[in-house]
Amino acid sequence: MTPARFCLALLATTLLFAQPSFAEPARDAILGQLAAEAKQANPAFAGFSAERGQQFWQAVHTGGRAETPSCTSCHTKDPTAEGRSRAGKAIAPMAVSRTPERFTDAAKVAKWFERNCNTVLGRACSAVEKGDIITYLSAQ
């Protein structure tokens, strides 16, 4: 192996393993699963969008409970802030920068999307909507 080739191999290895510090395999797996579902539902699916996620997060929805028309009803407009359940219990910030274990437990993610989409929208959320939200909150 020539020194030049050695350097090239070293660089490739470094790039392969050096991930950004906020990356989290469990969260990536959840997003990967959602992406696969989205692709299956719509072959033209081209990836999740933090911007769409933010719009969905802040939107006032209809179809769900009147007391909770939006994600922000409990989680507040600022994802880095603490939220509050209707019963008065504090909810840790949804932003991954503030609560790093967010979206790392697939069962928990599934449970809360099922409950909260039903409460806020009166229906289940699509894979795209879930992926967009996770993408948005992971960047916060």
């Binding site: 007391e67 909770t68 449970k111 409950r115």
Partner: peptide, 12 residues
């Protein structure tokens, strides 16, 4: 639990 005081609180 699907309608738990106005919240969906479904459990496995």
């Amino acid at each position: 639990l699907g309608d738990h005081f106005g919240e969906d609180a479904s459990l496995a």
